[in-house]
Design a protein around this nucleic acid. Structure first.
Lengths: 156, 156
DNA sequence: AACGCAATCAGGAATGGTTCCGAATTAATG
DNA sequence: CATTAATTCGGAACCATTCCTGATTGCGTT
């Protein structure tokens, strides 16, 4: 589940980070759930509605700070915009090759991390699991007019 | 297991792609396994030893072509260089936060893809699974002076 | 051997998301 | 409130990758 606004503010205080108006505006965007996997530009434009002077660099700085403190989790892509994972529960992201939609899927079983450590000596601190393919909407009419197009991610 | 040189050449022929000297040089780099997860610049510099006039744009074009035809699989990163997955068996990449090493791990059990399709209607065509953490070398002396590597990935 | 088309080259410019910089502003503290 | 450090801002810089252009090479086929 997504964190509460109060929880996030609490966490910032604990870490000695200031509660500023730009940050509050960004937090609102994150918790309001207009987008489960917002990118920097989405956050920037939305947060600007509340804090009109917000700059893009501050948006990036804030996202990085939040990522560093486990408030969001950065999903990195090349070519495409990076995304923020707002729901931090363990899950798999299903990413549509066609429309770019990202769907959260909570599987029943998962690879046991202690097995990995036992087998390889590798200590896991984080993970990233993504399945690519076609979402229900896109697989319904896979080869209609506009083929694999621009991979643009308009919605979560 | 990594594909054989012959297998790759065979596949190129099937797809109607020409067998050229630059491509053979690049294939050699891939199958010679000096690097299990080489980036474009590594491939470029290595392949140049065999085909001296190779250009960087051709290197990128070739990698993209190979990726498109399933001969390698592109691992996309942001900020860092992208990497080529040469071993296409289903596995998890263990990526060290410190030295950047990438270790292939073949788990015993995996999430069943048909379950995913059944539960979400999402048709899976590919996947990406990465665990981040500390490799054996780096977790041994996690907080010693020098982070043995510049976070750059010199070896697989 | 010769043709046609794909691939290569150069290499510089463009791209675009992200980061970096210096200066101005603001939050937290006592 | 005065101080100090953190934060913010705008714009410039970054950088791996892509995209040119047009000339040349050389693979695969006839």
């Amino acid at each position: 589940m997504t964190m509460e606004k109060e929880t996030i503010i609490q966490r910032l205080k604990e870490k000695g980070l200031s509660i500023t108006s730009p940050r509050l505006a960004i937090i609102d965007v994150l918790v309001e759930q207009g987008h489960l996997h917002p990118g920097a530009s989405f956050i920037y434009h939305e947060a600007r509605k509340k804090h009109k002077s917000l700059s893009l660099s501050t948006t990036y700085a804030t996202i990085n700070e939040f990522n560093r403190h486990g408030i969001v989790k950065a999903l990195e892509f090349d070519g495409k915009e990076n995304r923020c994972e707002v729901n931090l529960d363990d899950h798999i992201n299903l990413i549509c090759n066609r429309c770019g939609k990202i769907i959260d899927y909570h599987p029943l079983l998962s690879v046991d991390r202690t097995d990995v450590a036992k087998a390889t000596g590798f200590v896991i601190t984080g993970n990233r699991t993504e399945y690519y393919g076609y979402c229900q909407d896109c697989s319904r009419d896979r080869d209609s007019a506009s083929p694999s197009g621009k991979q643009h991610n308009h919605h979560s």
